[in-house]
Simulated assay, not measured.
Amino acid sequence: MLRWLTGCILGAALLTACDDPEPIAIGFVGGLSGRSADISRESLNALDMAVAEVNAAGGLNGRKLDLLVRDNQGDPALAADQVRDLKIAGAVAIIGPNVSAIAQGMLPVIIETDLVTLSPTVSSLAFAGLDDPFFRMNSTTRQNAGAYATHLYETGLRRISAAFDLQNKVFSESWLYEFRGAFERLGGEILSAEGFDSGATEEYGPLVGRLLATKPESLLLIANGVDTAQLSLHIRGMNRSVGIVAVEWAASEQLIELGGAAVEGITILQTYDRDDLSPRYVAFREAYQARFETSPGFASIAAYDASIVLFAALRAQKDGESLKHVLLSQGPLDGLQQELSFDAFGDGTRRQFFVTVRDGKLVPR
């Protein structure tokens, strides 16, 4: 009797194990605290939604997804350690980070561990054209800054002064270099370019004063949404008429929340169409708003698209096949608003839309 009962218990345990296969661990590394936390939270929100949708539908090939979240606190060294931690924890891939300076710290460990990592928003040219496990959804600084140069020149701007964030200089210096080259080739002029440390306690007033003293037609701010809002407040306190241009990094929902009237009229590039009426995007936007009580931003869209390509690759991956190979070889996939694909180096591109802040909303220019 005891032997029969023991057999039944073991049999039940085996059936339970068969019915509940081990989940697939997906890592997320983002700066959920600090000055660039807005875009990392947007990315995590979208990824959390994507994971919940897959799990509600039965998982990937019958296995549920387990999301392992790590806050790098804006520290590249901590983010590098988190890559090793996620590898040990069994993560098959990472989505993140959102900031190029963090990616710079992570990349050596990503290569060392061979852990596939997909960044929704990193764009520095320093990461393009490399044969490594680091995939990027975004266009490069050369592509984005070049688009800005053409757009601004075509709108009549010729004289610009710039401020760029030294805390993320692998992005900001790359962006400024590419913009300067493209803008000057068209006939424009960069009057002055000053770096600032967003992690320091320095006042932005003196920096803005020096830039305004060059008599520019517009100021170019190469910074995140929080610092762009603060710089704009100082600019409008000193000059009500000078133009303000912000790079795509600043295009989070916090820009308008923190900047208020000071960011009215600002020019900025978006990597998605806020007014898109395609059924898939509308369904995503409504679900996102219902769940998080805010609108999705560019980092949300890009992170959800990253989940689309990653989950498709995991579904298609065969035993013994590298995830990197599957990602590179799978055909274009339908994203929320565009086709998603990578070149031979795992570099993607995003669509470009120039918008302006009008009555507290980002609207097409």
Rank of each mutant, 00 (worst) to 15 (best):
6 T>Q: 15
6 T>N: 15
9 I>R: 15
14 L>S: 13
14 L>H: 04
15 L>N: 07
16 T>I: 07
17 A>R: 07
22 E>G: 15
23 P>K: 03
24 I>T: 13
27 G>W: 03
36 S>P: 01
50 A>M: 08
52 A>H: 07
55 N>W: 01
58 G>M: 14
64 K>C: 07
67 L>S: 00
68 L>V: 14
75 D>T: 11
76 P>H: 11
76 P>F: 03
78 L>T: 12
85 D>R: 09
89 A>F: 08
92 V>P: 13
96 G>R: 05
97 P>A: 02
100 S>K: 02
109 V>F: 04
111 I>C: 07
111 I>S: 10
115 L>F: 03
116 V>N: 10
117 T>H: 00
122 V>F: 06
130 L>Y: 02
132 D>T: 15
133 P>Y: 01
134 F>M: 04
140 T>E: 03
140 T>M: 00
141 T>H: 13
144 N>A: 13
145 A>Q: 01
147 A>C: 06
151 H>V: 14
156 G>Y: 10
156 G>Q: 13
161 S>R: 14
164 F>M: 00
164 F>H: 01
167 Q>C: 08
169 K>A: 14
170 V>P: 01
171 F>I: 02
177 Y>I: 04
177 Y>D: 11
178 E>R: 11
187 G>L: 11
189 E>P: 09
190 I>G: 02
194 E>A: 13
195 G>E: 09
198 S>Q: 11
198 S>H: 00
203 E>W: 07
204 Y>M: 12
206 P>T: 15
208 V>C: 08
215 K>V: 13
216 P>C: 10
219 L>F: 10
221 L>K: 09
223 A>F: 02
225 G>Y: 00
227 D>M: 04
228 T>L: 08
229 A>Y: 00
234 H>N: 14
237 G>H: 05
239 N>H: 15
242 V>S: 05
243 G>M: 00
244 I>N: 08
245 V>N: 10
246 A>L: 02
247 V>I: 09
262 A>S: 15
264 E>L: 05
268 I>K: 03
270 Q>C: 13
272 Y>M: 06
273 D>N: 14
278 S>A: 15
279 P>G: 08
280 R>Q: 10
287 A>I: 04
288 Y>G: 01
301 I>D: 10
302 A>S: 08
305 D>F: 10
306 A>Q: 12
308 I>K: 00
315 R>L: 00
316 A>W: 06
319 D>A: 05
324 K>L: 08
324 K>W: 05
324 K>M: 06
327 L>E: 12
328 L>W: 03
330 Q>N: 07
333 L>Q: 10
337 Q>K: 01
341 S>N: 12
346 G>I: 03
353 F>R: 07
358 R>S: 03
361 K>H: 07
364 P>A: 12
